[in-house]
Amino acid sequence: MDRLFTAIASRIAAFAGQPASFIIALSVILIWGVTGPLFGYSDTWQLVINTATTIVTFLMVFLIQNSQNRDAAAIQAKLDELIRALEGARAEFVGIEHLTDTQVEEIRRKLEEEVAAAPPGRRPTETVDRLLSRR
């Protein structure tokens, strides 16, 4: 079931991000708008577009969330592999995505303090400034 859902979700998410899907959605809205006078701008006419857009939005939330979760997990696995493979990397960082937001924020703050205390020439602000001055 997971593979089937992943395959379907991936295809729909890929299609939803294409210009063709935007053109289709825009066309549906334009056709709906043009048919307004034909149906006398009735409550049913309005209900059709409201119901359709609500259903599409509801389903797309789950597909987008699934796609983001899958992408985040893949990136996390790649980062964990880099940490594991690099000599001198701190293996304690593998799996920190499972900590609480407060714990992750504390780790981030301490890392920034550690970097700020780095010797001159190794500070990220100097590197960033050098890169920005290359324009």
Rank of each mutant, 00 (worst) to 15 (best):
N66A: 04
N69Y: 07
E112Y: 08
A14Y: 10
Q68H: 02
Y41R: 08
S21G: 01
T6K: 13
E126S: 05
G40P: 01
V56Q: 04
G40W: 04
A73D: 07
I75Q: 06
Q65F: 11
A9W: 08
F5R: 15
R123D: 02
L4M: 12
F22A: 06
L38N: 05
Q68K: 03
N66D: 10
W45K: 02
T54D: 02
A52G: 00
V56T: 05
G88K: 10
G95K: 02
Q103M: 07
H98Y: 14
F15R: 08
D2E: 11
G121R: 03
L82F: 00
V48N: 00
I23L: 12
R109M: 15
L86P: 01
I49N: 01
I24M: 09
R3F: 10
D43C: 07
L99A: 03
Q68L: 11
M1K: 05
T44Q: 13
Y41D: 07
F5A: 15
R11G: 15
A73V: 09
L79E: 05
L131H: 08
A116Y: 02
I75E: 04
I107W: 02
E106W: 10
M60W: 06
R90C: 05
T100E: 07
E105I: 14
F93L: 05
H98Q: 15
L30A: 09
I23K: 03
I55S: 00
E92C: 04
F58M: 03
G17L: 05
V128L: 11
P19D: 08
R123C: 02
A85T: 11
R134I: 13
E112P: 01
K78H: 09
R3H: 09
R84L: 07
T57K: 00
G33A: 07
R3D: 13
T100W: 01
R11M: 13
L4W: 10
F15G: 04
M1P: 06
S133I: 09
L47H: 03
T44R: 14
R134W: 12
I49H: 01
G95R: 03
T57Q: 00
P37T: 11
T100A: 07
L131T: 07
I12K: 04
V34C: 03
Q46W: 11
R70F: 03
D129I: 06
E81M: 08
A52R: 04
F22K: 05
A89Q: 05
L59E: 01
T51D: 00
A77G: 06
E105G: 07
V128C: 04
I31L: 15
L4P: 00
P19Y: 10
L131D: 09
D43Y: 14
V61A: 06
R135M: 09
T100M: 02
E113Y: 09
N50I: 12
M60T: 03
T102V: 12
L79C: 03
R135V: 13
R109Y: 12
I31A: 14
A117Q: 09
A16M: 10
A73P: 02
T57P: 00
S21W: 14
G40L: 04
S10K: 14
R3W: 08
S133K: 13
G40M: 06
S27G: 15
G17W: 08
K110R: 15
L131K: 11
G36V: 06
V94A: 03
